[in-house]
Design a protein around this nucleic acid. Structure first.
Lengths: 150, 150
DNA sequence: TTGTGATAGTTGTATTTGTAACTATCAAGC
DNA sequence: GCTTGATAGTTACAAATACAACTATCACAA
């Protein structure tokens, strides 16, 4: 008989996190890719500007945990769709202030309810106690993962 | 005053899952990349073969949630290190049975305690109730995400 | 047999991503 | 004013990844 394996992948937290993230991303992307042909970085920029109203590329990267090159390319692509516009800061000409155009805001408003519905549908399928446990435990995990010494 | 934004990214579950997964992956990869120069796919193949003892490439892909091309290339790379060997199945010559060599098993044995230590260190920093909540809630979430209709 | 459809695994190619280098601008000190 | 070092953002190039096509093999049936 084979001895108990020292590491079971399916019980290993980093693997489980990756797997759950990949599954939910794949499910969610069907919405924004199917409806608008957006990529993940583009969706995140849209979501950030929808939330913050106006932001620089650096601020978008910080808020959405994306590298500046990813932000730069997603912004360029959304600008090509005329979903956002740029305004050079007159006091510091290195920066550009970005905001959604009317078309961008319209897409955002159409997209958000479907994104939230996905989240609600996932949470609604869980027992109330499991849902509360998830939200509590996951918040604690985030604090650990984000703590600086790590 | 700006109205309450309809979707706060930092509270949106798929985004939080992706972020937590990326953080833990980055932290964990310091171990296997720093010690052995492994990539994530290589580590997953190693972990799968360490756990299962012997498997085909298809079985590795299924067990580690990786696409067959990723598995194929990771297997080729580990074979080049002489960390695994292949044995063609005599009854079905399409398949190859893969297992770790002595060198591969030795690397696995050195790596696993450090991987588990990382997980333990993360969990140990959480309050017991938070830890229990995480494990309970996350397991429930996995069941939902993996359920077929989604 | 031999033809058909399916499966195991690899390879080619295009897309995506990350790293590093680059331009432009600023602030602060000399 | 000029350096010097830092920051905002873009671009070039290399690495990783995904998708599709491919080879080889099998099972099954006409």
């Amino acid at each position: 008989m084979r001895e108990q394996p020292p590491l079971r992948l399916e019980a290993f937290l980093p693997y489980r996190l990756n797997r759950a993230a990949a599954l939910s991303s794949a499910q969610l992307s069907r919405i924004y890719r199917g409806a608008f042909g957006l990529t993940i970085p583009e969706w995140r920029v849209l979501a950030t500007l929808g939330q913050l109203g106006e932001a620089t590329a650096t601020a978008i990267g910080r808020h959405s945990s994306m590298h500046k090159t990813k932000v730069s390319r997603a912004v360029a692509s959304l600008q090509e769709r005329r979903w956002l516009d740029r305004r050079r800061d007159p006091d510091d000409r290195r920066m550009e202030h970005l905001r959604l155009t009317t078309a961008g805001r319209s897409a955002y408003r159409r997209l958000v309810p479907r994104m939230l519905a996905y989240q609600e549908q996932v949470l609604a399928h869980m027992a109330a106690a499991d849902r509360e446990a998830l939200l509590r435990g996951f918040a604690a995990l985030e604090r650990i993962l984000e703590s600086p010494e790590r």
